[in-house]
Amino acid sequence: MQVIFKKLAYLIPVVFAVTILSFLLIKALPGDPAINKLGFNATPAAIKQIHHQLGLDKPLPTQYVLWVGHLATGNLGRSYISNQPVMTTIKQNLPTTIELMILAQLIALALSIPAGIYAAYRPNGLFDRVSTSISFAMLALPAFIFGVFLVYVFAIRIHWFPASGWTPISKNFSDNMRTVALPAITLALPLVAVYLRVLRSDMMATLQEDFITMAKSKGLSTRRILLRHAFRPSTFSLVTVAGLNTGTLIGGALIVEVIFALPGIGNLAVTSVFQRDYLVVQGTVVLIALGYVLINFLVDVIYALVDPRVRHGVA
C-alpha cells in the first residue's frame, strides 16, 4: 500500500507539469485563432470580441485555472474551425486509435510469443539467428517506410487491402478488419522485434533454472516444459514491456494513422496543427500525455501488487 501512495504522490506533480506544459505549449503557438476564424480582413473590434468570447483576454494563470477546471469536467472547449466541442471530436476519434492499439498488441504477441519460445529453446540455432537478424532489421525499419511498403505490396500490387480509409467496426465488421489490417501490422512490427528479444532472453535464463532440469528428469515432454513450466515465469518482462507500450502506442499510432488516413487521435493532432486549431491540439496532447502517465502508473501499481519484492521495497 505504501508503495502505491508513494507513486501516487509522485504522479501528482507530473500531472501538474504535464497540464501546465500542454497549456503553455499551445498558447505559444503562432497564429491568432480569431484571425483564423474571421479571416485576415477582420475588424479589430470583431477580433476583440472573439478574444473575449474565448477568454483569451484574461491573464495566463487565470486562463490556466479555468482550463484545468474545464478539463476536469471533460470540457475542452470548441474547435475554432468546426465549432464542434473538442471532447466530442476526440471521442469520435478515440475508438479508431484504441482498436488500432489493441490489434497491434495482439498481432505482436501472437507473432513474438511462439517465435521467442522457439528461439530460446534452441539458442544460436538457425531459427534463433534468423529471427534475431530479422528483428534487428525490423528495429531499423520506421513505420513510415514499412507502411508505405505494405501499401505497395498488399494494396497496389495485390489488391487484398485498401491503401487508406476507414470503416468503423459498428458499420461493417469485415470491412473494418480490412481497413485496419495494414495499419495494425505496421504498428505491430517494431513491437514484435522488442517482445521477441525480451521473451527470448528471459526464457533462456529460465531454462537454466533447476526446476527445468527437474522437469526434464521427470521425463516431461519438451512441449510441456516449454509451455507449462518455462513460459509463465519468463513472461515478467514481457508483461511490463507490453504494459508500457500500451501507453506509448497512443503516440506511435500517430504516423500510422497519417499514412493510412485513419480518423484516430494522432491524425487529429497532426491535422489540427496544420489548421492551427489550438484547442483540438491542446486537447489531444493533454489527453494523450495524461493517458500515458496514468497507464504507466497503473503498470507500476500492478507490479507492486504482483511482485512481493517490489511490494516490500526489496528490489
Binding site: 520506421p142 513491437l191 528479444r197 518482462s237 506509448t248
Partner: peptide, 28 residues
C-alpha cells in the same frame, strides 16, 4: 543488453520501442 541499447534513445522515436526495451535489460 543488446536490446537495451536500442531502447536508450528510443523514446525519441516512434515510441513503439520506447520505455519498452529498457525493461529488457534485466533478462538479457
Amino acid at each position: 543488453s543488446p536490446a537495451q541499447s536500442k531502447g536508450v534513445f528510443a523514446e525519441a522515436e516512434t515510441e513503439a520501442l520506447a520505455d519498452a526495451v529498457i525493461a529488457d535489460s534485466g533478462g538479457a
